[in-house]
Design a protein around this nucleic acid. Structure first.
Length: 791
DNA sequence: GCCTGATTTCTACCA
DNA sequence: ACTGGTAGAAATCAGGCG
């Protein structure tokens, strides 16, 4: 019989050296199904040395077959490697677990250059080779079998053929369950060996809400009821926030300690740690939305409440907020316990809201790059690009290079012009549309088209990059050109399709998420080629793209000047010019003709302010909004009190054009700050731990604050944000940096915030109008002046 | 030992 | 574990001075 399904999750099992791919899906009748496919065998390649006769090698291999009983066959194949034809022997095995071992030993055979693709996981191999795509529809010939191994599905099948993708756009009705947990410890961070999980809140996308609450410190029932609830609701998606790092590991350890089985998977097993630091829940997609927070540059501190606020799921003013450190006091106090419960409930509501807002993107990205839905959010951008490339490579017979360690060598990137400081009226930004991708297409930049300096020029001719002089074959179209053209074509079709739809419809939103996913991958390809961790790392490709980019922008600036357009600033692929439509039109026509690149006016600023600094400016848009770029206002590592003041200064200057009024506003802010009229949270400075504490060479304030947190029992790891305030006292700054949760308002050194936060950011702007920082500080008492002098 | 300017370290931003 | 270019703060180093 035939069945049609949408792919939710994939895993594999090996039984008696025989592999089985387990395909978890949802069929077109909304049934949850599992298809077991026993028809696919893993393999790897042995690349034959150039000019070597492969026949004797095959014979040698055949003669060794008795030593390798799990090898099924050797197959001589023609492939490409970095565009050059190679002869390879495809070694097909029975058991995926022996691939790596056999590959290592067989590559030593005479006449073999190296082994390849032994580092591709079996389940991914299955997806790539059979063009099976996560979060997409397929049809397949199957036989139904009896469900006698207790998996939680409506139907269980064995595959008779491989799945085939079919054109079908809608996403099935997914059952989503969001959850969050709170653990209790009287002192320090909770430890699963001794501290209970006191609250688990769940919330589903069909509006069901539930809380499992410990009686005293007995949490056995809490976890058991949670497991029961999950099994009963049978979600397709388990949504959480930082669950891969926090909730799942804790629940797993805690269950072990209590002797409970956390059997929440569809295979009745426990979740397990998988690749890329993610937790896999077999048969479901465990999505940790924290992994997608990188897609939201607007949110500086990626806490759950901030992300929920960003999506309008739960406005931060309405969100009950309790610091970890206070959990125990809320739990212990019968009057305050209900607030803790409310906090937990709101967290879970936030998660379900974020899930609804971001799931489309996750689904589209998963489908685009062929990484399972639960993985795609946890992997870095480079790997997303790489999986897309791997899929493309398979299609054109290009072998997948090994990842290897390389020395880091930098190269010259984009040009950045010195801005003309001051306020300019009626300015527009001319942007090159997708500059790097377009350069890569027109110049055929690709790992497989690069002609090294030792090689003779091919008959088809070469494109030579300016300055760096790297050469790239004109023909045939390179791997990247094919990929980029495909992907841009897909995006154009999506956007065309969107025009026919109601912007509020589900299809429109899905397409919009899809075109965003495509854009993310397209824009990351240039960076990928210059990344030393890339399988297809090829510095000349990145270097040449950058060189052509500089060439284009510098020529554009020259031309603009010739036409009589004043250039105020420029960075990499954009120039800021006075808005003069006819001149701009002429300029863009010449550029298109000369470079095959498209430039178009993006937005128009009524006024735009530049200081001396590059990459920092603020423009006033026709609708009255400010577009602030690079300045402290948009940075996450300045106290809000300073950011707010700078924003107001910019607003007064750009809208009312009264710098004196802006200065007066700053004086007022300082006076408010001295009177403690500014909320405590506006004094917090946030900085990220970018490496393990021990790896730091200097005693930076946020590192000292982090150490204090750890002394107080916090678990900190790379990537965590440290929020600290500067407290009054003597000594160096780092000695006075205290975690905000361990300090109080009265400890704060207000004068620090004035002298080192508020005044510098305000005067950076006001200096343009000859207003010095010293004129911004209202007179102080002699005592404070002394304190100030001491610093 | 203190002061000062230069250099290094660190983070977060822009394209 | 995408790139290079950049600003800015604070720590730290290096050299001059007495």
């Amino acid at each position: 019989m035939k069945t049609v399904f949408w792919l939710l999750d994939v895993n594999y099992e090996v039984k008696d050296h025989k592999p089985e791919v387990w395909i978890w899906g949802i069929d077109d009748d909304d049934k949850r199904i599992l298809i077991i496919d026993r028809n696919f065998l893993p393999y790897f390649y042995l690349v034959v040395k150039q000019k070597e006769n492969p026949q004797p090698i095959i014979e040698t291999l055949e003669s060794l077959k008795a030593d390798y009983p799990l090898i099924k066959k050797f197959e001589l194949v023609n492939r490409r490697f970095f565009g050059k034809s190679v002869t390879a022997i495809k070694v097909v095995c029975q058991d995926p677990t022996v691939i790596s071992k056999h590959a290592r030993s067989l590559e030593k055979i005479n006449g073999i250059k190296n082994r390849l693709e032994d580092d591709i996981r079996y389940s991914m191999r299955y997806l790539i080779d059979n063009n099976v795509i996560p979060c997409s529809w397929h049809e397949i010939e199957v036989e139904e079998i009896e469900n006698n191994f207790g998996v939680q599905v409506d139907k269980l099948y064995v595959a008779s053929t491989f799945p085939r993708t079919i054109e079908k756009n809608e996403i099935p009705e997914l059952r989503i369950l969001a959850f969050s947990t709170i653990s209790y410890s009287r002192q320090g961070a909770p430890r699963p060996e001794k501290n209970p999980v006191i609250i688990i809140s769940v919330c589903t996308n069909v509006g069901d809400e539930k809380q499992f609450v410990a009686k005293g410190s007995d949490d056995k029932a809490v976890i058991e009821s949670f497991v029961k609830y999950v099994r009963n609701f049978d979600p397709d998606i388990l949504a959480g926030y930082d669950t891969n790092r926090q909730d799942w590991p804790y629940l797993l350890s805690r269950s072990k300690k209590l002797g409970i089985k956390l059997s929440v998977t569809r295979a009745n097993t426990e979740p397990h740690r998988s690749v890329y630091g993610h937790v896999s829940v077999t048969g479901r997609a465990n999505i940790d939305f924290f992994g997608f927070a990188d897609e939201l540059p607007e949110v500086k501190i990626k806490t759950l409440e901030n992300v929920a606020d960003f999506f309008g799921v739960m406005k931060i003013e309405k969100h009950t907020l309790i610091e970890d450190i206070d959990f125990s006091s809320y739990w212990e106090n019968p009057e305050k316990r209900s607030i803790l419960l409310k906090f937990s409930r709101e967290n879970t509501q936030s998660i379900i809201g974020i899930a609804k807002a971001m799931l489309d993107f996750a689904v589209q990205l998963s489908s685009l790059v062929s990484l399972p839905l639960d993985h795609v959010g946890t992997v870095a951008v480079g790997f997303r690009v790489e999986w897309y490339l791997i899929k493309e490579a398979y299609r054109i017979g290009e072998l997948i290079p090994k990842r290897r360690e390389r020395p880091y060598i930098s190269y010259v990137g984009g040009v950045v012009l010195k801005p003309k400081p001051g306020v300019h009226e009626n300015v527009t930004i001319l942007d090159f549309k997708a500059m790097y991708p377009n350069i890569m297409i027109t110049e055929n930049l690709s790992p497989d088209t690069y002609v090294s300096s030792s090689e003779p020029e091919p008959a088809c001719g070469v494109n030579i990059a300016p300055e760096v002089k790297h050469r790239f074959r004109k023909e045939p179209a390179g791997f990247y050109k094919v990929m980029l053209s495909n992907v841009i074509g897909v995006r154009d079709r999506m956007r065309l399709e969107m025009k026919k739809l109601d912007p509020k419809s589900a299809e429109y939103l899905a397409l919009d998420a899809g075109q965003t996913a495509v854009k993310v991958i397209t824009n990351a390809l240039y960076g990928y080629t210059g990344w030393i961790g890339a399988r297809w790392y090829m510095k000349p490709v990145a270097e040449a793209a950058a060189a052509w980019g500089r060439h284009s922008i510098l020529n554009t600036i020259e031309l603009a000047k010739k036409i009589g357009l004043e250039v105020i600033y420029g960075d990499t692929d954009s120039i800021f010019v006075k808005y003069e439509p006819t001149k701009i039109k002429r300029l863009s026509e010449i550029i298109t003709e000369k470079f095959g690149l498209e430039i178009k006016p993006d937005q128009i600023y009524i006024r735009v302010l530049f200081t001396e600094a590059k990459k920092r400016y603020c423009g006033l848009l026709p609708d009255g909004r400010l577009d602030t770029v690079g300045l402290e206002v948009v940075r996450g590592d300045w106290a809000a009190v300073a950011k707010n003041a700078q924003e107001k200064v910019l607003e007064i200057i750009l809208k009312e054009q009264t710098p004196l009024k802006a200065a007066e506003f700053v004086r007022q802010s300082i006076s408010d700050l001295r009177k403690k009229r500014v909320p405590y949270k506006d004094l917090i400075i946030w900085k990220t731990l970018t490496k393990p504490i021990k790896a730091y060479k200097v005693r930076a304030p946020h590192i000292e604050a982090a150490k204090r947190l750890m002394e107080a029992g916090w678990d900190l790891s790379v990537g965590d944000k440290i929020g600290y305030v500067i407290v009054a006292g003597s000594g160096r700054l780092h000695e006075r940096a205290k975690p905000y949760v361990l300090a109080a308002y009265d400890d704060v050194d207000i004068e620090y915030y004035i002298a080192k936060q508020l005044v510098p950011v305000a005067s950076r702007i006001l200096a343009l109008f000859s207003i010095g920082g010293d004129t911004l500080i209202p007179s102080r008492t002699p005592q404070t002046l002394l304190e100030f002098a001491e610093n």
